[in-house]
Design a binder for these strands. Structure first.
Lengths: 346, 346
DNA sequence: ATTCGTAGCGAAAACGTTTTCGTGTTAACA
DNA sequence: TGTTAACACGAAAACGTTTTCGCTACGAAT
């Protein structure tokens, strides 16, 4: 077991100083060609690589990005990571991920763990619990220590950082408009409680689309699911609530769901009630993941381009890291959604 | 913007030496109660946190684990990460992830990027391209530099490291035995080319199950899909091949697929041929992900417990990191699979 | 012969810690 | 009074780099 070789060891072996070795390896003109070649040959032979930690300490840059997300077993989030990793890697950065599990405490702990020098900046999406408690001191403290943050998807507006979001309102509006154009008269929305910003915004889009087409919203058509519960029978509860929705609205002929799971569950329930999709009921979901693609019938969805969101977030962060001299101004980038039409709509 | 405070700054402010501050904060008995309290109060006020990078350099430990996986947008892998993160975090470790995208070069580059001091050890699953080329020098080099590796799922045997695998043979065997017990006479397997070890092993399990029940394997019932192609029409190609399978075997009444996608595609094709599931054809998949759970009908699968694999891998690695004095011996832990029965079997 | 410039290299500081090994002061003891 | 022990603290090294500055020696210029 040969430990990694250091400058000091090379210096000792070749009987020169550490500075000489360092300079020789970086092709400094201070060093004679003789010495340079000698050092470089030796370094190559022993496969010398500068120690990253030492470099980080010296440069006070780690070339590492910290990602904090609520969960990783989730198509959207892993797509985002994928995008971040892509551009980060291209620019010589590593990514280190922390999971909050939707918990405020874990979010705080994770951030503290990383903020002490391990990383240069954060890319994150806020935990539900944090959104609920509306306690954002950890973000503000991190920022005030000079560590930039980029938020995506689940954001809160009055924090001084760049943000990458999807136009939830517009995306939802597009989807619901599609349903209306396809002839749906009674369109339900299955959404989350309002404290989840994306749920709230998509609901808003739903309402706006109705309004645009002079349709009066009906309270019984709006189902706000409480997704705080992560219990085992969560799925049953969900299914039950959706069944109620169908029972209360016999003439339901369109469903807009704010995520994949709600959408396919709605399809399942519809089938249970003997409705054919898309002939009797048309369904559109939000977030284009594996489920939508491979469901039967395949699901028409609003794609939010998770990969692109990740790429953009990484670009914003790295730009900020490498142009600290620029005056501070923060942008909110909106990634356009696309409606991907499949077989759950006509 | 107040930069993070350091020992040196505290020392200067309180007019004591750096060592005194350090000791005071670590409650050394060398320091008088007076000074200790003074220092701790000051440190708390300014929210002092030791700089991780400096600690890493000093201790030559980063308390960080490097993960290299082929892709992250994949239920199994994200489950594994989830498990790793869980136990890593509990033990004060961070995780830093690199994606190989199934490419040999990216795998090598990623490992080199992390091996220079950024992490203490690796947990990884080998890229397909690497398995194909059978070039494992980067693993061996890393190990010979004293950096432990734990491999999971896609492993290669003759590398000196701990391994966590699923009993692919046994899992497959269980599944196929189930089909046989359920009355299937003509059982097909949809698998990958043999260089992917998990595909090979699951095929082996399939054959063993048949043999156990005195059933002669038929070549036409074995479909080895080439999943090197990641093209856009990959799905179509897959579907086509499976259609051929059904056409060539009119009396096909059972399908064992080595992953979710193959399984639900098989269900799709079966439906297309007018076969009812599970009455006419029963299907079992491998890897219990979202697709299986939410497919219609829901899919009976062999669950490989990705989370548990991750947890075990992390435990092995951390143990090795924290007990370097122990004699070197490497274990291969086998995580048992479970057959999760759902609606695609009788 | 003296000054100057320059090529080639080394010493040392700095990044932020921890830890070992002094060192000075005071109190206790012979 | 002189010795010792305990106490409280500081200096410095070390982790592995990069970089600034200084030094030496030698050839060229005056």
């Amino acid at each position: 077991m040969k430990r990694k070789i250091t400058l000091k060891q090379i210096a000792r072996e070749l009987d020169v100083s550490i500075s000489t070795v360092s300079k020789a390896l970086r092709n400094s003109s201070e060093i004679s060609e003789d010495t340079r070649e000698k050092v470089q040959a030796f370094a190559k032979l022993y496969n010398y690589r500068p120690n990253n930690i030492a470099l980080s300490l010296k440069n006070r840059k780690t070339k590492t990005i910290g990602i904090i997300i609520p969960e990783i077993v989730h198509h959207f989030f892993s797509k985002v990571i994928s995008g971040i990793e892509l551009v980060a890697n291209k620019k010589g950065y590593n990514v280190i991920v922390g999971l909050s599990n939707e918990s405020f405490d874990k979010e705080v702990i994770n951030m503290e763990m990383l903020a002490n020098g391990s990383i240069d900046g954060f890319i994150l999406s806020i935990a539900k619990e944090t959104l609920l408690q509306q306690d954002y001191h950890h973000f503000n403290e991190t920022i005030s220590q000079g560590m930039p943050i980029v938020m995506f998807d689940r954001i809160v507006n009055d924090i001084k950082c760049d943000k990458v979001i999807v136009d939830d309102v517009k995306g939802a509006k597009k989807a619901v408009a599609k349903l209306i154009e396809n002839g749906c008269k009674q369109i339900a929305i299955i959404t989350t409680k309002d404290y989840v910003s994306v749920g709230r915004l998509r609901t808003q889009g739903y309402l706006e689309a109705l309004e645009d087409h002079k349709i009066h919203p009906k309270a019984s058509l709006i189902l706000k699911v409480d997704d705080k519960l992560v219990s085992e029978d969560y799925l049953d509860v969900l299914e039950n609530e959706i069944e109620q929705l169908f029972k209360q609205n016999k003439k339901l002929d369109g469903v807009f769901a704010v995520n994949e799971l709600y959408a396919i569950t709605a399809m399942k329930v519809a089938r249970k009630f003997g409705k054919h999709i898309p002939n009797d009921v048309q369904v559109i979901g939000f977030t284009d993941g594996v489920l939508s693609k491979h469901a039967t019938p395949s699901l028409t969805t609003v794609s939010q381009h998770g990969q692109k969101i990740g790429e953009k977030a990484a670009e914003l962060l790295i730009h900020k890291l490498e142009h600290e001299e620029e005056e501070e101004r923060f942008q909110t980038v909106i990634i356009e959604t696309d409606l991907i039409e499949r077989d759950s709509t006509k």
